[in-house]
Simulated scan of single mutants.
Amino acid sequence: MAGQTDQLIKPGSGHGLLDVYGDRFLLKLLVRKEIKVRYRGSVLGLLWSYVKPLVQFLIYFVALGIFLNLQRGTPNYAIYLFSGIVLVNFFTESLSNATRSIVDNRDLIRKIYLPRELFPVATVWVSAAHFLPQLVVLVGACLVVGWAPTLLQLAAVVLIFLMVAVLGTGLGLLFGAMNVYFRDSENIVDMIVMVVTWASPVLYLWTMVAKVMGDWFWIYQLNPMTVAVEVFHWAFWEPTLKADQLVNDATPPGMLTLWLPIAMLITLAVLFVGQLTFRRLAVHFAQEL
């Protein structure tokens, strides 16, 4: 009996995100469940992964590219625009769904114990499943206009994907835990989602911001999503330009050597704070739900 007692684990305790890796099978089941529930009764199903960003792209392209004539000063503006949209959509979908993940799975959480981190992480995986088809469309469009990336640019794409996934997970853990206690968290996240598209150079060039902010431009660069979008433009949009279309200010100075490492450090800090907050609040999730 003494030996069995020593092996008992205090309810609610665990190793955080490390437990998610240990319960990979449960994570796989949750991802399948999320996808099935989301498209239950839907005619198009996963095809919505193509339709939604396509409609969003067309609206922005017509409003900004044609009506405001931004495409005139930006070669291959359609590639520039879409490469930013698909990345920001991945982040916003991950954050929004992760924020609601604990509350949406309240029935399961109240019945059994399993690592609570599984729910936000599963939603990020679902968002990744939506991101990949959009990425395929982006690559196809880039190839049509002569995309010729280097190995470094392809590696940067993978790195940025992982960074944005970690950022979405960290913020999702933070706001997902807070949302159990304060439902206003969903409204805060909705505002973040609304702002992030405009707070990153998705629809416009970073040089426009630099001209306005001047010496304070570094504040704009502290946003990890700003750096992520700039790297995506460097990897997808810039290799589609001809030699006479390239300009010296296509990418911000020090993007890879300075701002990308800073963005990664900020992302890891967000993940640490999100995991710490989540673990402290997760103990009483079942009671609060």
Rank of each mutant, 00 (worst) to 15 (best):
T169K: 06
V189T: 10
Q71I: 03
G65R: 09
S83C: 15
V195A: 15
E186I: 14
A228F: 03
L205F: 11
L8S: 02
G3K: 15
Q4A: 13
N89P: 08
V126D: 10
W259Y: 13
F91K: 12
L281S: 01
M208T: 12
L138I: 01
L151M: 08
I192Q: 06
V121M: 05
L18E: 13
A98E: 13
L95N: 12
V136Q: 05
L81R: 00
T92R: 11
P261E: 04
L58W: 01
E117Q: 15
G84R: 00
R106P: 14
G254Y: 04
K111M: 09
N76F: 00
L87I: 14
T197H: 14
A63W: 10
L246P: 13
G41K: 00
R24S: 06
Q56H: 05
S101H: 10
L205M: 12
Y39W: 05
F57P: 00
L246S: 11
F272I: 09
N179F: 13
S185C: 10
G170I: 06
D107S: 15
S96Q: 08
A210P: 01
K211L: 10
I262F: 03
S13A: 09
V139Q: 08
G22Y: 07
A243S: 14
K242F: 14
T150E: 03
Y77E: 03
I262P: 12
V157D: 03
F67W: 13
V195D: 09
M1Q: 13
V283E: 04
V37M: 06
V43N: 02
Q275D: 07
G14K: 09
G146P: 08
L26D: 06
P149W: 01
E186D: 14
T99H: 08
L205Q: 15
L281Q: 01
A286P: 03
G274H: 02
F161D: 00
P224E: 05
Y204N: 06
